[in-house]
Design a protein around this nucleic acid. Structure first.
Length: 930
RNA sequence: GCGCGAGUGGCGGAAUUGGCAGACGCGCAGGCUUCAGGAGCCUGUGUCCUUCGGGAUGUGAGGGUUCAAGUCCCUCCUCGCGCACCA
């Protein structure tokens, strides 16, 4: 219980902080303080401001969760806000705003559980989250806020979809082009179809089918990830390595279904190459590279009877060492390659106890079909069975056996490999199990004792390759294969085209209709937006593995069938019933921030060029969690590149600098049954933790409902105020690092603000209490040292050390006997203002200023104040500090040595000893070695 | 298994062209103020020893380079993240 009567009326308490915070938040809102002017258009403003260097700072925009924020969420938002405020004070036109990623599975799942319509639910969540964020005092240009669920926003998501639908990838020019240009080239015979079909001899429907396959957004029948529990199909990126849904951890099944796909594979090389120019961490770049999974090698054909098996290998140089072939059990040629009888002399080992290959192969295929991906991963013992057929090795016509084995995956390369046990560990293991030949074709080092040798060395046992190193042997072999029509150079990728349709209600409808031909047809711009129909029954059905996905939009009978004119007169059409995935809106929202009210274009050219200029990527700083490393960041790079190719944006990449903030973790406690107990109720006693008198165990994890360890910003506003919360979150540690939350430590940040306040304001009467007299030279020096350090720290997002420097300065001010000199007080408030903007505004006003501090100039250190006259130099003997001396900073090395030797402590220590070596680092230290 | 990152007081963390380890904060201890303290202020606080001057020791473990190593090199351990039979 606090007794208010003892606390001075104008002390900086939580209640007082709340008063001034609300005051200044209202002021900023009323004055449009954070409005960043565009160079032209509806949001144009003061040309003096839009003439400043621009800075586009962004947070990954959040999904408005129904449970609201906990203190872990705003960490990155605060970080970008501090940086943005600092940059405003150094003469930049800073664009910083916030939007909501409000479509998608989670919104709908939540709505399904509560029975509320997704829109109502989403709007309520957005309002709540906006309230929580506003209270933090984030300097966002609120005019630019968007939600992906706004009709005026998703109108343009649909428009961008049409850009993709109406474009194709020209492999020669390595860029996307309008589909009409392809049609023109085919019409004028400037281009032939690679299939050999003759364009001019085809009917209209066949032509449309051909063209549709060229589109960057296309319909395809392909094995997709069907998640019955979610009632929808999912992209590869949304399925975990265990074969479950990323969201909800439900089982996912591979099923062939006709779905919308995006041709992201066409951009694989550019997505890979352009990573080089981005200021992203190597961790994220590596994750993207792994996901794209480019490997160079060769496709080699092996002849079996009349047919050919194509294998992909990255080691064509080892072809002479191929002693068998392995097909994935799902490979389409397995059946035709399975002979009816075991060939004479087939080793028993290869038969798996079956009397003929047909039964053996059948049994093996059934067994591996039953195995989940997880089983296949966990059990790496090699299994397989002989098909009874032999293939012909193209270089020497040797006959080698063909196996099927589940260590070869259908989803990669051609689903078939040439096995080279001498140079491949997996093949070696398999060869050991089945007693197959092993032939080394690369000479291992002399004392090599291992099995397969994958390192470099001269080729052996390889005829015309002998003596060549791996790289030379590869190119020589590829030449040979191409000359002998047995293969070719080949690049494969792990990345697959992006599955883009979902059987859900709460997403963007496709701007696509189907006419009499049944082929997909694009709506034209004037028919946009395609608005989501109001549905009473919008929930997806819970379905089984074998059922078909049912798009909920099919239940909107009146909406699903329309009569419109899209160029061929008024006709009957049925609409596409799928919706887009959640990623669609987040692929491009940053562009809408630039020009959110534009009803003619998704962003005007002029505005886009202004904000997106500077590097290869337009956004100057993008802060968000590492969990979007391959999903959002890959998809939006892809869309951006398409828009770039088609001339709609001016730079090839969206995000120049990416920064991954860490997570705030919190202690969670489990009782003896393993159940989580309310962390707030746990008490510590001598290193042990108790809940309700019972011993509980502590662990750390992400804040949230399930661990019962959430702390909300609202609680922090009540107990400390928003400035304190901001300061504490920035002070906990480096922004990119995970850190444990400790409510009991927050008070430290509040004390700093209290002390700064008290150093400038009389707590009893609330009056400014500073001195107009000059500061001491020592304090002035400290101030400039602090300014220098804080500036550097702010620039490098090292807010924790910036706060430490400010604290040091304030600690010195606290020691003064007289009031704080104005020449110190004003810069101190400047240094503080990006971190704790409300108290800074209040102090700034008390200091007599009528303009907001937001656009004040951040102090610059006076270099002459940084130079010191006297240095304290440690003197070491044998590397150990024995004394310290004060010397003039401009002392010469020899004088420094003399001064050190004259130090009484040093002279007594070295007297009678032989100084063998003297190290004199001027300005740093002296070390005598005896 | 492969790749990346990290290991510093009771706790969060400072310190990098190698140059005084532990800035700043929390916590803790003592004091002031107070009827009281879960408020505020001051002082102290790596560990061990100490005659209170100081001494020894110390950055996951072990070794090395150097006048000098948290920092560089080698070997190993632990934790986190990513990928995982990708041919």
């Amino acid at each position: 219980m606090t007794r208010e009567s003892n606390i001075p009326e104008f002390r900086y308490t939580a209640a007082f902080a709340n008063t001034i915070e609300l005051k200044w938040q209202k002021y900023w809102r009323d004055n449009g303080t954070y409005h960043a002017p565009n160079p032209s258009g509806a949001l144009a403003g003061d040309p003096k401001v839009s003439g400043l260097p621009k800075l586009f700072i962004m947070d990954m925009f959040p999904y408005p969760s129904g449970t609201g924020l906990h203190v872990g969420h705003p960490l990155g938002f605060i970080g970008t806000d501090v940086y943005a405020r600092f940059k405003r004070m150094t003469g930049h036109n800073v664009l910083h705003t916030m939007g909501y990623d409000a479509f998608g599975l989670p919104a709908e799942e939540h709505a399904r559980q509560t029975g509320q319509h997704p829109r109502e639910n989403t709007n309520a969540n957005i309002a709540n989250m906006q309230r929580q964020l506003d209270r933090l005092g984030l300097g966002h240009d609120e005019r630019r806020s968007v939600a992906t669920t706004d009709l005026e926003f998703y109108r343009w998501t649909q428009w961008i979809f049409l850009q993709l639908f109406n474009a194709w990838y020209d492999d020669e020019l390595e860029k996307a082009r309008p589909i009409d240009e392809l049609i023109d080239e085919l019409d004028s015979r400037a281009r032939e179809l690679p299939s050999g079909k003759i364009w001019h001899e085809m009917d209209d429907i066949s032509r449309q089918e051909i063209i549709n396959d060229y589109r960057l957004a296309y319909l395809a029948e392909a094995p997709v990830n069907w998640c019955p529990a979610l009632g929808t199909v999912l992209a590869n990126e949304e399925v975990t390595a265990e074969g479950r849904s990323d969201r909800g951890n439900h089982p996912v099944f591979k099923r062939p279904l006709k779905q919308w796909m995006m041709k992201i594979t066409s951009y694989a090389d550019r997505l890979l190459d352009d990573l080089t120019d981005l200021d992203w961490t190597d961790a994220i770049k590596t994750m993207q590279r792994n996901w794209i999974g480019r490997s160079e090698g060769a496709e080699i054909s092996f002849t079996v009877n009349e047919s050919q098996i194509k294998v992909f290998t990255t080691r064509p140089d080892t072809l002479f060492g191929a002693t068998y072939i392995v097909l994935s059990p799902e490979h389409p040629m397995v059946e035709e390659l399975t002979s009816s009888e075991w060939p004479p002399d087939t080793p028993e080992l290869w038969k798996n106890d079956f009397t003929n290959p047909v039964d053996a192969v059948h049994a093996y295929r059934n067994e591996s079909a039953r195995k989940s991906d997880l089983d296949r991963q966990e059990n790496k013992e090699k299994t397989g069975v002989f098909t009874g057929s032999y293939a012909c090795l193209p270089v020497n016509k040797n006959s080698i056996p063909i196996f099927i084995a589940d260590y070869v995956l259908m989803g990669y390369g051609t689903g078939a490999i040439m096995a080279v046990p001498g140079q491949d560990e997996r093949d070696w293991e398999f060869a050991e199990v089945f007693d197959l030949d092993i032939l080394r074709t690369v000479q291992p080092p002399e004392n090599w004792e291992g099995k397969a040798y994958t390192g470099d060395g001269p080729a052996i046992n390889s005829d015309f390759l002998n003596g060549l190193d791996i790289e030379e042997a590869k190119t020589t072999m590829i030449d040979w294969l191409e000359n002998n029509k047995s293969g070719k150079k080949q690049v494969t990728y792990k990345i697959r085209d992006w599955l883009f349709s979902r059987q859900r209600y709460w997403g963007e409808p496709f701007p696509i209709v189907y006419g009499a031909t049944g082929l997909p047809t694009a709506l034209t711009d004037e028919h946009l937006p395609v608005e989501l129909p109001e549905l009473i029954d919008w929930a997806p059905r819970t379905l089984t593995e074998n059922s078909d996905p049912e798009p909920p939009l099919g239940r909107a009978e009146n909406w699903a069938h329309i009569e419109i004119d899209i160029g061929d007169g008024l006709q009957q059409y049925s609409r596409e019933l799928n919706t887009m995935p959640q990623w669609a809106g987040s692929c491009w929202y940053y562009l809408r921030y630039l020009d959110p009210t534009n009803s003619e274009e998704f962003v005007s050219e002029d505005v886009e060029r202004y904000w997106m200029s500077g590097g290869v990527g337009g956004v100057d700083l993008y802060v968000g969690g590492v969990e979007h490393a391959v999903l959002h960041l890959l998809y939006s790079r892809f869309w951006h590149k398409v828009l770039f190719d088609l001339g709609h944006v001016s730079c090839p990449e969206p995000f120049q600098r990416l920064y991954n903030q860490g997570y705030i973790q919190a202690a969670a406690y489990q009782d003896s049954r393993g159940l989580y107990v309310d962390a707030e109720e746990v008490v510590e006693d001598n290193g042990d933790y108790f809940f309700d008198g019972n011993l509980v165990t502590r662990s750390f994890g992400k804040m949230g409902k399930s661990l019962k360890n959430s702390v909300t910003p609202d609680e922090m506003y009540d107990q400390f105020g928003a400035d304190t919360l901001r300061l504490y979150e920035m002070f906990m540690g480096p922004l990119d690092q995970d850190r444990p939350w400790e409510t009991k430590s927050v008070v430290g940040s509040q004390r700093l603000l209290q002390r700064i306040w008290r150093n400038l304001v009389n707590e009893e009467n609330g009056e400014l209490e500073i001195s107009e007299a000059a500061a001491s030279l020592a304090l002035r020096r400290l101030l400039h040292k602090t300014i220098q350090a804080v500036r550097e720290d702010m620039d490098n997002l090292r807010f924790n050390t910036a706060i430490a420097r400010i604290t040091e300065l304030n600690n010195e001010i606290t020691k003064l006997a007289e009031p704080t000199p104005r020449e110190i007080a004003e810069p101190l408030v400047h240094l503080l203002s990006p971190l704790a903007p409300h108290i800074a505004e209040e102090l700034w006003e008390k200091l007599g200023h009528t303009e907001s501090i937001v656009y004040a100039r951040f102090p610059v250190a006076d270099q002459s104040m940084l130079a010191v006259e006297v240095l304290e130099i440690p003197i070491q003997i044998n590397g150990k500090v024995r004394s310290k001396i004060l010397v003039p900073s401009d002392i010469s090395a020899s004088d420094l040595k003399e001064a050190a030797l004259n130090d009484p402590k040093i002279s007594s220590e070295v007297s009678g000893k032989d100084i063998r070596k003297e190290i004199v680092i001027n300005g740093k230290l002296v070390n005598f070695v005896t």
